[in-house]
Design a protein around this nucleic acid. Structure first.
Lengths: 225, 225
DNA sequence: ACCTCCTCCTTTGTATGCAATCCTGGCGCC
DNA sequence: GGCGCCAGGATTGCATACAAAGGAGGAGGT
């Protein structure tokens, strides 16, 4: 009989945190659709918490922009509109540009290797045509890059904006051409990062995001039809 | 007898919003010192609300980074440390760079004139040596600039980060030389904005923020002694 | 004297209760 | 027939009650 599972430090997080994270995941993954009403009674039952922590979660997600609070009428999942996506990607573009610059300067070789590993995992997914896996590793790479900039504030800001984008990702498909192009861009970004070419990485990342923007917004428009 | 005061639309905001704003102001103005413990009982009495909306406000301010939640031990005002300021200003630098670029393209002449008006108000304060007034108009100018970029997401992100900085502003003094220099920089920014020189404005704003960074961090260090 | 443990009090975390608001649908009136 | 109005029910907003955790202070042991 197992005496102790590998649980790490005994984890007892506040319920409102747990609720916030669970809800955020549900929204980001699109399992709570944009525009959907968030019924307190339903969600309390579903999450097994009372209304208080749940409502605290609503407030947090509202400041993150994932939820909209309608006074006296509850909360809804923020609708996704192309304009807001455009805005968000523009902001993320400059954030990632800065992140790349800082990462070029500050990241250790070990950290770069971690990113490289993720990159190869991503290539594997691309080769297999595994889009979900591709997105996952793609996300991970971008997040790590920002993290390894060493600027925690930047990382936080980036993460928050990222929630908005991820939702769209789950909705929008990706053309094969754009996919191939994105992979090529990643290859180049990684090379430049390894070379610690501060000036060039900024341009590359900004461009990469601009292309992503065009792609996502294009796909979204296509879905509107 | 007056039948109707000019109240505009009847304003009935949720208590938690009101509480959030009031608390945020208290923190930003430094009336709740960094590191200070936020006692729920005290604050409920002071704000005249019950614990529920107050605690919701805590959560919101925590995601904004102005408050830290210590599980089972309540909340404190986030301490100000130079490193975090550095980080924040770096991020705001690129955000404002983007904002300037967009404002150059999108702002109407009327909007630019609004900024110009604020600029002259600011000059007046500078001439009088009115530092508090100067900060106020300075803030207003930067916020308007970002707002007139036309990117609401950018504006939100900027505003949030700005809270952290404003707190430091109330603490750190300003050398006369740096003050004069800042005013000159503003003059130039305004001129370039009027000329709609997209490339140049970005450089100017980024530099301006870099200088601000150096100034604020320098002053903060000076206070540590 | 110092450390430890225990207890009490304070404060926080969560659940629940109550009042106010909003939506639904059905009735009356034009 | 359509419009507006008025319950009734459901849902939210806020307050409060209850349970659990943290911290302070004193008694007892070494």
């Amino acid at each position: 009989m197992e005496l102790a599972q590998e649980t790490g430090p005994i984890l007892r997080r506040p319920l409102h945190e747990e609720a916030t994270d669970r809800l955020r995941d549900l929204i980001v993954q699109g399992r709570l659709a944009p525009g959907a009403r968030l019924n307190e009674r339903l969600l309390t039952a579903q999450l097994g918490v009372s209304r208080t922590p749940l409502r605290e979660a609503f407030k947090v997600l509202a400041t993150e922009g994932l939820v909209e609070l309608l006074p006296n009428r509850g909360a809804i999942v923020s609708p996704i509109d192309a304009e807001r996506l455009r805005e968000t990607l523009a902001v993320m573009g400059v954030l990632e540009g800065l992140a790349g610059e800082l990462a070029c300067r500050n990241a250790t070789e070990a950290q770069l290797n971690e990113i490289r590993a993720l990159h190869y995992e991503m290539l594997a997914c691309h080769a297999r045509g595994d889009l979900a896996g591709y997105f996952k590793f793609n996300q991970a790479i971008h997040l790590k890059l920002v993290k390894y900039s060493g600027n925690a504030t930047l990382y936080n800001a980036y993460r928050q904006l990222n929630g908005t984008i991820r939702r769209a990702r789950y909705m929008a498909n990706l053309s094969q051409e754009r996919w191939d192009e994105a992979v090529r861009e990643h290859e180049e970004i990684l090379a430049v990062l390894g070379a610690r070419d501060v000036k060039r990485i900024k341009v590359l990342l900004t461009d990469h995001l601009t292309h992503k923007l065009a792609s996502v917004v294009g796909e979204l428009k296509a879905e509107d039809r």
